[in-house]
């Protein structure tokens, strides 16, 4: 019924590529927030503050058990009722960053727990402080263990950025929608979006594999 229109495809491609830049910025800055926040969540969960640990545990369970879309809507539409008014970009980054922070904190936790117990004891025997032990001994060994999980979630956050289109973040999906409604043609824009996502996701997964192998090699295992 529909015939693929190459001319139309070439014509919309610059706009889609421009939007791809936005998608990448959204994914990467969301991921940066998630990486830092996730580490904080993981460390709190290993700390001694029992109440705080419990609170964070529950928060993580709550966020991991509710859809990202609900959280995006919540931050953008409900937060203003409490006097917090954020732009689509900021609320989008915040929602997706917090969401993935919870997943990443579990990855970090697994990585930290994967470091042999004897390493902690050796650090104690050298009279290292807890901070020194984390920074110098445990985290460098935990990183290679975290890379596969972190890579999965990097691709995951990238694929979840279209959710931000619902609050008006001008990323790839949002732009494809706009193109579609302007021209009454959806085949080319949506197909192109799929191809662009694939073209970025596949090499990323490969790069993550390479990085993991490199880090493991450097660790000497």
């Amino acid at each position: 019924m529909f015939k693929w229109d190459w001319d139309f495809t070439w014509q919309i491609l610059p706009r889609l590529i421009h939007a791809t830049g936005n998608t990448l910025i959204a994914a990467l800055s969301g991921y940066a927030i998630a990486m830092v926040l996730g580490l904080a969540l993981a460390l709190v969960q290993r700390g001694n503050a029992t109440v705080l640990r419990w609170l964070i545990r529950e928060l993580i369970e709550f966020i991991r058990s509710t859809p990202l879309l609900v959280q995006v809507f919540f931050v953008f539409y409900v937060a203003p009722q409490f006097g917090v008014r954020l732009s689509p970009w900021v609320s989008g980054m915040l929602a997706i960053g917090l969401h993935y922070a919870c997943y990443l904190s579990e990855v970090y936790r697994g990585g930290i727990e994967g470091v042999a117990h004897g390493q902690w004891e050796a650090a104690t025997a050298l009279n290292m402080s807890t901070k020194q032990t984390y920074v110098r001994i445990v985290i460098p060994q935990a990183i290679p263990l975290c890379i596969p999980g972190m890579g999965n979630y990097l691709v995951g956050i990238f694929k979840d950025t279209p959710m931000l289109s619902v609050i008006g973040v001008a990323e790839l999906m949002h732009t494809a929608n706009a193109i579609g409604t302007e021209n009454y043609r959806f085949l080319e824009p949506y197909t192109s979006v799929g191809v662009i996502f694939l073209a970025i996701s596949l090499p990323s997964a490969g790069l993550v594999n390479l990085l993991e192998r490199y880090l493991r090699h450097r660790l000497g295992t």
């Binding site: 042999a116 004897g118 390493q119 004891e121 050796a122 025997a125 001994i137 460098p140 060994q141 450097r218 660790l219 000497g220 295992t221």
Partner: peptide
């Protein structure tokens, strides 16, 4: 010194 050495592998 420990039974399993516990050297830092990195």
């Amino acid at each position: 010194c420990f039974q399993h050495f516990n050297l830092f592998p990195h």
